[in-house]
Nucleic acid binder design. Structure first.
Lengths: 191, 191
DNA sequence: ACCTGAACACCGTTCAAGT
DNA sequence: ACCTGAACACCGTTCAAGT
């Protein structure tokens, strides 16, 4: 039967979860789907674009939270982090796809955060920069968290994972609040 | 004559500047140095470790600024950004090496920023997280800036680069101030 | 329109063997 | 101690040719 984009993305996601980003190659994916490597290039221009589609699939649970601007920022940050932690190397994948501008969901997240920053009173020229600063934090924090998590999971007597998880939630929120307080301080002085 | 670590790093840096990170391979580097690929593995455990050494070479101009904590943070951020912009794909290289914990200079920068955060009054448990948040911003911002810069440089009628450069300096400083203000707000409440 | 087969031009890493 | 040569096990991408 015919190969569809969504089948390719689904197979790629399962390879990601089972073997990690380093072992997610075009050739291996083709083998899994029982097609020739070239077939993938009918559906995707290149590997980066395919990974962008996988990133957007990972980010599918991220929504459009409502409320005042600080709680919207908080909710969005938590939703992105949770989505990344749900897949092996999810943070690394999304981080790379964001840098390559291949994730439409991350572009939308930046849009939502830009609106929140504008609502907070950040000058229009700096609202998107403010949004990106929040994204850099979420991605940086989660890449780090996930690499430690996965390193612990492989070997090493893990010292009660649940306690550390609570700790990481608290630490993550600390950074989000630091950013929100920074935004508050950088509002336009309107006399 | 014998191959030394510093020769390898120097040759790698010049390949980086001339052809970019994607074309900096172990095999190409060996060819440039007129040794067999295996020779590099006598001096470096793997490619990541070698790239970490190159990252530290790129970061060599970063110093240990003095002054009060906000100006130390500001100076450090500017120094790191300037160093990254001085080499092709410098930001991407250092970002990857930092994530892989292969750059001792970036580890030192985090140390300096942690001290600054502690001096600002951030609780000890969150001082390092605060420091890493600043680093995520500097790396994220500069990766983005450099990729746009290099995209413009290759083809496209660049609309007077100098004006945009001033603009980028101002934008960078805005983010740094946002973080400093966030740190100020997250000081321990000592009555 | 969609895919195969085969090729092109590479990779990182290892390791017996040499000097 | 330091390096070579050769191998192992792969890559991403392209494209004429097929259906």
């Amino acid at each position: 039967m015919q190969l569809h984009k969504r089948d390719v993305v689904a197979a790629a996601t399962s390879l990601l979860d089972d073997y990690g980003l380093a072992d997610l190659s075009m050739r291996r994916l083709a083998r899994e789907l029982q097609v020739s490597p070239g077939a993938l290039y009918w559906h995707f221009a290149n590997k980066q674009q395919l990974l962008g589609a996988v990133a957007d699939h990972v980010l599918a649970p991220v929504g459009r939270p409502s409320g005042d601007w600080p709680s919207r920022i908080g909710a969005l940050c938590r939703q992105v982090r949770d989505a990344l932690l749900s897949h092996t190397d999810g943070a690394e994948l999304v981080s790379a796809s964001f840098a390559a501008a291949e994730s439409t969901v991350m572009a939308d997240v930046v849009g939502q955060l830009t609106d929140a920053a504008a609502e907070a009173g950040v000058p229009a020229t700096n609202a998107e920069l403010t949004a990106r600063t929040v994204v850099y934090y979420v991605l940086g924090f989660t890449v780090d968290e996930q690499s430690r998590r996965q390193w612990d999971a492989a070997g090493a007597d893990l010292p009660d994972a649940s306690l550390l998880t609570d700790d990481q939630d608290t630490r993550f929120d600390f950074g989000v609040r630091l950013l929100i307080d920074g935004i508050l301080a950088r509002r336009e002085q309107r006399v």
